[in-house]
């Protein structure tokens, strides 16, 4: 049945009257980087906490390799909580050894892994220091080490890039890609949409506790109506008036962005543009993930309230 995947199936969770999750569903396949985006309070953190067993769901199921995830499976998950946390008054090395042993490692294997990762993340010299004495950036590196040390089979990272300096962002990206290439399903949430767009194979956009768009970034960007970007210096306002299937979305300088109705002919638009004079650019406009995100989020808000 192929490589093991992490499946989130119709999770629901309420806090009193507040609905935190409302049928949250998606899956992360082996060797896939899955980006989880949505506004604050959309349910990303709650989903991850439930996947890790830190919270219990009211309904729905989390499956790993086809069967409901168990406490034992969860020890294979590398987790980075949104709220970073380590014992402030415990030494870096000792703390990481402890956390690794909680994942079932022997003391000697844990020591070896800690040495390797501290070296790799460039904090080997702080092994004997208390966590609270480290800079924020170094604390983040230790936190990342805590998520990766036990050679996880699944990675669940809540906002792994927040608070990182550019160098650490690069290190983190490398590590995620490397893990993903090794066949580990990786899911992470982020508000840095450019990073998500660059790194992820698939993206899920959440709103009010459920998934509103999910798929490969290219597919999401290609979806919806065709948009064209036309740069025609001679065109005046209303140059598209003769074409009822064309709507002008934006005019900026000599550039016009139009949206075509279902079945409209883009060549007709080109001819109309040429009729106004020279055309410097005529291209399909593909929305960035940021635009997509904005559309998805606002669209639904309008529909609901």
């Amino acid at each position: 049945m192929g490589e093991p995947a992490l499946e989130i199936d119709h999770l629901t969770k309420r806090y009193g009257d507040v609905v935190a999750l409302d049928g949250m569903t998606f899956d992360v396949r082996a060797g896939e980087l899955f980006g989880f985006v949505g506004s604050n309070g959309a349910g990303k953190t709650t989903t991850m906490r439930i996947a890790l067993g830190v919270l219990a769901a009211d309904g729905g199921e989390v499956r790993w390799a086809g069967s409901p995830i168990t406490a034992q499976n969860r020890r294979h998950v590398g987790y980075m909580p949104e709220e970073r946390g380590l014992y402030p008054k415990m030494k870096v090395g000792e703390q990481l050894v402890y956390l690794t042993r909680l994942h079932g490692w022997s003391a000697s294997a844990a020591h070896k892994a800690v040495d390797e990762w501290l070296e790799r993340l460039g904090v080997a010299s702080r092994r004997e220091d208390n966590v609270e004495s480290l800079s924020l950036g170094n604390q983040q590196r230790v936190q990342l080490a805590a998520a990766l040390l036990h050679d996880p089979q699944i990675l669940v990272l809540d906002e792994p890039f927040s608070g990182l300096d550019p160098v650490a962002v690069e290190v983190m990206s490398e590590v995620l890609v490397e893990k993903c290439r090794a066949g580990v399903p990786v899911v992470f949430s982020s508000h840095q949409l450019d990073l998500v767009e660059r790194l992820c194979d698939r993206v899920g956009i959440v709103r009010s506790g459920s998934m509103v768009a999910c798929g490969p970034v290219d597919e999401l960007r290609a979806g919806g109506r065709t948009r064209l970007s036309v740069d025609a210096p001679g065109a005046r306002d209303g140059w598209t008036d003769g074409m009822p299937s064309v709507t002008v979305l934006e005019r900026a300088g000599t550039r016009t962005i139009v949206e075509l109705a279902e079945g409209a002919d883009d060549q007709q638009v080109l001819q109309a543009a040429l009729a106004t004079g020279p055309v410097r650019e005529f291209a399909r406009h593909r929305p960035s993930l940021t635009e997509l995100f904005r559309n998805v989020v606002t669209e639904n808000q309008g529909a609901n309230r």
């Binding site: 906490r49 946390g85 380590l86 402030p88 909680l102 805590a146």
Partner: peptide, 10 residues
């Protein structure tokens, strides 16, 4: 310190 979330995952 929020470390409990990391602990409760194991």
């Amino acid at each position: 310190s929020r470390v409990v979330e990391l602990l409760l995952a194991t």
